[in-house]
């Protein structure tokens, strides 16, 4: 297990998780689309599967809705 911050909360997750796997785990059954920010930089969707989460990382998973 590794310790990371997800949306400002310190959380323990399995080591070796990718961003894609983390998002899936966080979302559960929800179909909500989101953006992900890793240590201050947006991780684009096409890189989710190859981005490995490391110990001490700060991650933001932000749900998106509609706009004007």
């Amino acid at each position: 297990m590794i310790k990371v911050k997800i949306n400002k909360e310190i959380t323990e997750i399995k080591s070796g998780l990718t961003m894609a796997a983390l998002v899936k785990e966080m979302q559960g059954q929800s179909k909500m689309e989101c953006i992900t920010i890793l240590n201050g930089s947006v991780v684009v969707f096409s890189k989710w599967s190859e981005t490995i989460i490391n110990d001490g990382d700060e991650i933001e998973i932000i749900v998106i809705s509609s706009g004007g």
């Binding site: 689309e33 989101c34 953006i35 920010i37 947006v42 684009v44 969707f45 933001e60 932000i62 749900v63 998106i64 809705s65 509609s66 706009g67 004007g68």
Partner: peptide, 14 residues
């Protein structure tokens, strides 16, 4: 929210 963190432009990601 995405409104503050990025702005409504973020919606295009989804």
């Amino acid at each position: 929210s995405h409104y503050h963190k990025v702005g409504t432009i973020s919606i295009i990601d989804g």
